[in-house]
Every structure is written in structure tokens, then in C-alpha cells.
Design a binder for these strands. Structure first.
Lengths: 214, 214
DNA sequence: TATTATAACTAATGATATTAGTTTTGAGGA
DNA sequence: TCCTCAAAACTAATATCATTAGTTATAATA
């Protein structure tokens, strides 16, 4: 994947109280992956420049040579996270179509949020419309979903409503799972597959003006 | 509503550069409402003790006489927000049942998130299981939803899956709306009512073991 | 009026992000 | 091989937070 994993999972020079070696050899990729690790392992609120610098064995101002402050780091994290999410759901749906594909994608989506909780959260901030890369990453996921829905023949508008619906379902379910919001001992995988099944059963509604439209 | 609105929408003494009057007469309720106002108007990241103190015309340490630090304020905000949300959706569904009730509640839920964006966000943090008030506020909303679903005769387990589904739909949709995540010029109210319609059409699936259950 | 609980204060500490300006490195050209 | 120099890392400094400790002053009440 084009990345030297040297810093991950180890204490840095500073964390061990040693003197640093002259050049740390950082780049955006290393920063973002290390930050994602912090987000997943320690929580998103621990993703600070101070914490990241410590993990990488440098002083926090040094990070500014590679990213545009904390805001820039967050943007990069979102881009990275959306890319990973896209990879996960795309490969899950690969070779499938119809309900099978949607179910597989849904499972992968939620599993991503479960296994990379911090990184998933970074993808949720409003996609800064000024950042082309971020917008593109968002749109890649969107068109993946749109493709899966072609089969259902919903028409132009119906398709848009359906995409919104499916996104809502996946995001809502993933968020609640992640927060531990479903307390009880009832298998969440079953809940998810039945929710998607219910949605797909009624997906024809997306094309039908209903009596609840104000 | 048992609350003196004296501070809201006005600049404080400090903000106007005057000397303060001896006792500010604060209490938890005033703090929480002022904080909610900041959250809605300036964004949730602006809800700091410093900002809140300035708005109320006191110094930030004074706030500790009423709340348990920033963490405590956030907990109180979540409780308040869940209460307001509960009121909104309960009164929307009042006197209705079946699809009508679910549709009305869904509309009210999303409208709440739209009109009180900051306050809605405060309700999303994991419900600290140590805080009884917070848990109770969460559960009130949950049982409201459960009640609405009685009509559909889903059985014990089916009902639980359905609650999870509906919560996911509402939360997911509301979150995406709030983030401005649905770009285009397509009425979101229509998207929501059709999504709920699709869910209700397929709600029988909640009771049926499907072939996608791993 | 005197007492007293407590609301609000000041002062201090320790995180954090960020900027400015300095040092040092190491890669590529002389 | 040695020099140059862009850039990577640094130190120092500032500003904003949250939080704690200890002080002052208010206003209710005895």
C-alpha cells in the first residue's frame, strides 16, 4: 500500500525519553495513518496535534510542515477514511447485484464503523465543499450506492430518494452501533439485515408520491 | 416553563465592558438554556465554559458552582435536548396511530434536528450509563417509539428489530440533513416520508428470519 | 443586626493550537 | 568530494481553554 509502517504500534523517541534522530521522515500519509490509529484506539477526542506529535517522536510545530494545522489534519483524515470505507463496501458488493449486493454493502458499511470507530467518525463532518479531494471521495461512495440501485428501476427522482434513504439507514445504524446505543443482547447483524430487507421490500415507494408529502 | 429568560439574546455586562452586578442569579437551567443557544447559533464547538461565562456575564470558574465542569454541562445539555426532542415528537404523534403516527413523529424528529442543530447534536453522545437522568430521558423516547409500533404486531423480537430500524432511519436522516449532506434541490420532506413509507411497507420483515442472517 | 452558606471572584497551573524565527539536515549540483 | 540551500525539524512565545485553590462579598435567615 505504499507506506512504511515504522511508527505504528511503537513508542516514539520522546515517549521513551530519548533524544530524537535528526530527520523523522514524515509525510502526510504517515501523519494521517498515525492519527487514524489514535482515533480508533483512544477516541477521536484524543486526536490532537500534541498527541500525534508525541506518537511520531517530533514536536507539534513540526507537523505544520506537512499539514495545515489541526483542521487540515481532520480534512485529511476524512479523505482517508472515506477512501477506506469506499474500498470496504466496494469489495463487499463486488460481483453481486440486487438485494445480495445491497445486503453485502450494508454489512460491510456497518462492520467498517465497528472496526474503525475513530476513523469512521472522521468521515462524518460536513464535507467541506471547498476541498475537491474530500468532495470526490464522498461522491465515489455515492455513485457506488447509486449503481447498486439501478436494478430497482426507480426512475430519476425515485433513485435519488432511495439513495438518501439507504444512506440514512446505513449511517444511522452504524452511528448507533458505534455509540453502543443498542443496549440489549439482540444480534445487531440480524437487526441490520432485516432493516435492509424491509427497505428493499418497500423500495417501490420511492417512486410513488404518497399521501404524507406536504 | 419555569425559567427567567433574562440573559438570552442580550450581551452580558462583560461583553458590554461594564462592571458586573453582585449576584448573577444563575442556576443549572439558565446555564443549559444559554449553552443550547450557543450550540444552535454558533455551533457545538463553540460551547465552551469560557464562551458560556461571557454570555452570562460571569467568570468561568463561577460556573462550577452550578455544574460539574464542561463534562457536566454536556451531560445536562444532552438531558435537556432529549427532553425537548421527546416533547416535540410526542406532541406530533398525539392522537394519531399507525402509519399516520409514525410519519408525524418522523417529520417532527427531523424538524427538531433542523431547527435546533446544536442541541440535537448534544443528544447524540453515548448515553452515560452512570447518569440516571440521562438514561431515563433516552428511555422515554424509546418507549414512545415502541408504543407507536404496537399496532404492527411484530412480536417481541420483531418489535425490537423494528425499533432499532426506525431509530436508525430517523437518526441517520436527521444527521445527514443537518450536515447539509443531501446536496441537490430535491425536497427532503418527500425523501423522508417515502423512506418511512418504504420501511412501513416492509415492516413485516422484522419478524421474519431472512436469508441474510449470518 | 449578626451569622453563615454559597455565589462569585482572583490567581495560578497545565493542556492545547498556532506563529515567528532559528538551526540542521541531507540531497543534488559544482 | 564539497557546497549550497530548500525544507524539515527545532525553540520560544502567545493566546485560549479547563480546572483547582483559596478569597471576598452577598443575601437569606436566625
Amino acid at each position: 500500500m505504499g507506506f512504511s509502517g515504522q511508527f505504528f504500534g511503537q513508542k516514539s523517541h520522546y515517549e521513551r525519553g530519548e533524544r530524537m534522530s535528526p530527520r523523522a521522515g514524515l509525510d502526510v500519509d504517515i501523519l494521517v495513518r498515525a492519527a487514524a490509529e489514535i482515533a480508533d484506539e483512544e477516541g477521536i477526542e484524543e486526536v490532537t496535534l500534541a498527541r500525534l506529535a508525541a506518537k511520531l517522536g517530533v514536536r507539534s510545530p513540526s507537523l505544520y510542515n506537512h499539514i495545515n494545522g489541526l483542521q487540515g489534519l481532520r480534512t485529511q483524515l476524512a479523505i482517508y477514511g472515506l477512501g477506506e470505507l469506499n474500498t470496504a463496501i466496494a469489495s463487499a458488493a463486488e460481483g453481486l447485484s440486487g438485494d445480495d449486493a445491497v445486503q453485502a454493502m450494508g454489512r460491510a458499511y456497518v462492520e467498517f464503523a465497528r472496526s474503525r470507530p475513530g476513523l469512521y467518525k472522521t468521515t462524518l463532518s460536513s464535507p467541506d465543499p471547498n476541498n475537491a479531494e474530500l468532495v470526490a471521495a464522498s461522491e465515489r461512495i455515492l455513485s457506488l450506492i447509486i449503481n447498486l440501485l439501478q436494478v430497482y428501476n426507480l426512475g430519476k427522482e425515485g433513485e435519488l430518494h432511495a439513495v438518501r434513504g439507504l444512506r440514512s439507514i446505513l449511517h444511522g445504524f452504524a452511528s448507533i452501533v458505534q455509540e453502543g446505543g443498542f443496549g440489549m443482547p439482540l444480534d445487531t447483524n440480524i437487526s441490520l439485515s432485516r432493516l435492509i430487507a424491509a427497505f428493499l421490500t418497500g423500495i417501490g415507494q420511492m417512486n410513488i408520491p404518497g399521501k404524507y408529502e406536504s
